[in-house]
């Protein structure tokens, strides 16, 4: 069998070349597959990282919005505003002589206000990413062209 192979290669030497090429290509394909897999995994990792960074920023933004809304709500319900609102609705501060106290057996006064525990503090972004990291070559080229044309 081996003798037959040798005979065949001797009669058609291009087959040796073809075999070498095939083996090289096979190795190359294997390398490409491995590189592709590596690239795919890395791309997914990078994507996950980007999503994580994005979510962190989003969380910080939502926390900030929540705090701002809480502050706005507090602005709208200050004792002064509530008194003004009550007065505009025709109410006036009660005096002792206006009140009647009734004793109710078994009445348990409500428990006082309990403060909510502090919520986790999101990391405050220290500003948006510099354009140095976000501007692509195409963006830059476009910007330069527009600048040369006198357009912002």
């Amino acid at each position: 069998m081996r003798k037959a192979h040798r005979q065949a290669f001797r009669q058609a030497p291009w087959r040796i070349l073809q075999q070498t090429t095939s083996n090289t290509l096979l190795g190359l394909v294997a390398l490409l597959v491995i590189a592709g897999m590596y690239l795919a995994v890395n791309a997914r990792l990078a994507d996950a990282g980007r999503v994580l960074l994005g979510l962190e920023a989003q969380r910080a933004d939502l926390m900030r919005q929540s705090t701002n809304l809480g502050a706005q709500l507090a602005d709208l319900t200050t004792p002064q505003r509530m008194m003004e609102r009550a007065a505009s609705l025709g109410f006036q501060p009660a005096h002792a002589k206006d009140l009647e106290y009734v004793v109710i057996d078994g009445y348990v006064p409500p428990r006082g206000f309990d403060a909510p525990p502090p919520i986790g503090s999101p990391v405050m972004p220290s500003g948006s990413l510099s354009p140095a990291y976000t501007e692509t070559l195409a963006d830059w080229t476009l910007r330069m062209v527009e600048l040369l044309r006198g357009v912002r």
Partner: peptide, 25 residues
């Protein structure tokens, strides 16, 4: 700044909330 290296940073220990004895009314 490198996305693959991004990781969830721990939140810093928050400050306490205080309830005063003051009655706003």
């Amino acid at each position: 700044f490198i996305p693959p290296d991004a990781r969830l940073e721990p939140d810093p220990p928050a400050g306490v909330n205080l309830v005063l004895t003051i009655d706003a009314d």
